[in-house]
């Protein structure tokens, strides 16, 4: 098993957001987590990535047989966790290529590898850019600075392609995307799918799941996963909304 979350409780400023989440993810699988706004979807993503504004009050998260909760953010990233941000932050003056090269080589150093030679790095960038249809000049621009909504999300998937994580968590990657950008982003994600890695897609629209077809769909509501099922669950949610789940549980 790649990721095992057991009875995870997390709070922010004393307010409990996650109230006992259980989730298991295996290699090769795509999981979708759905649910209305404010039920803890983004919190779950942030807690897995290690954002320290959240306090984990109970439970455990085991990733690749490692206790994830003991690790600082960058170590989790180096072990293969990638978070695609809902709102990617701007870093003025730092070009994407510079940023990625620093990240890639820090990860390689952690794994005991030599830094990637410049030519190899450039070739890899060219290859991965095609994946998300990024035009070549974008990587010379500062990270996310002045990017359109679509460019920001493409940039997230481009970074995912470059860093080759084992577990990718995509937080609302579809928000703010027009249909063309959505197709490109989803296409990028799909082409990165393999038997070795896994993906968690967080969304509250079924629309994205037409493009990234999940193996499992979970409904997160008020800090708990209240229902799990196959991809057909997403369609059912689209049709009926979430209300029918709230009462029965």
């Amino acid at each position: 098993m790649l990721l095992q979350i057991k009875n995870l409780h997390a709070s922010i400023q004393g307010k409990e957001i996650l109230k006992g989440v259980n989730l298991e993810v295996n290699r090769g699988e795509v999981h979708a987590i759905m649910g209305p706004n404010g039920t803890g979807k983004s919190t779950l993503a942030s807690v897995i990535a290690g954002r320290d504004i959240y306090e984990v009050t109970a439970g455990e998260v085991v990733f690749n047989s490692l206790n994830l909760l003991d690790m600082p953010v960058e170590q989790r990233a180096r072990e293969g966790i990638f978070l695609g941000f809902q709102y990617p932050v701007e870093i003025p003056g730092v070009s994407i290529s510079n940023f990625l090269r620093t990240a890639l080589n820090d990860i390689r150093k952690y794994k005991g590898l030599e830094p990637m030679p410049a030519t190899e790095f450039l070739a890899k960038m060219e290859e991965k850019k095609k994946l998300v249809e990024i035009h070549s000049k974008l990587t010379n621009r500062s990270v996310n600075e002045g990017f359109s909504g679509g460019e920001k999300k493409k940039n997230e998937i481009f970074q995912m392609a470059m860093l080759e994580p084992i577990l990718s968590i995509l937080d609302e990657t579809d928000s703010g995307l027009d249909i063309d950008a959505l197709r490109i982003v989803a296409g990028g994600v799909n082409s990165l799918r393999s038997e070795k890695n896994a993906t968690i897609v967080i969304t509250h629209y079924q629309r994205l799941l037409e493009y990234i077809v999940p193996d499992f769909v979970h409904v997160l509501y008020e800090g708990r996963i209240i229902k799990s099922g196959g991809k057909e669950l997403a369609l059912e949610l689209e049709e009926k909304g979430y209300d029918w789940l709230k009462n029965g549980g």
Partner: peptide, 29 residues
């Protein structure tokens, strides 16, 4: 910002390098 640091760290960059990177970006002009 904490958001910038978290973003860099989530990509595997340690805190000191992240600060170096951000400061250099800030001074780039």
């Amino acid at each position: 910002s904490d958001d910038q640091l978290f973003y860099c760290q989530q990509r595997g960059i340690d805190m000191e390098s992240a600060i170096g990177l951000i400061v250099n970006g800030y001074a780039k002009e």
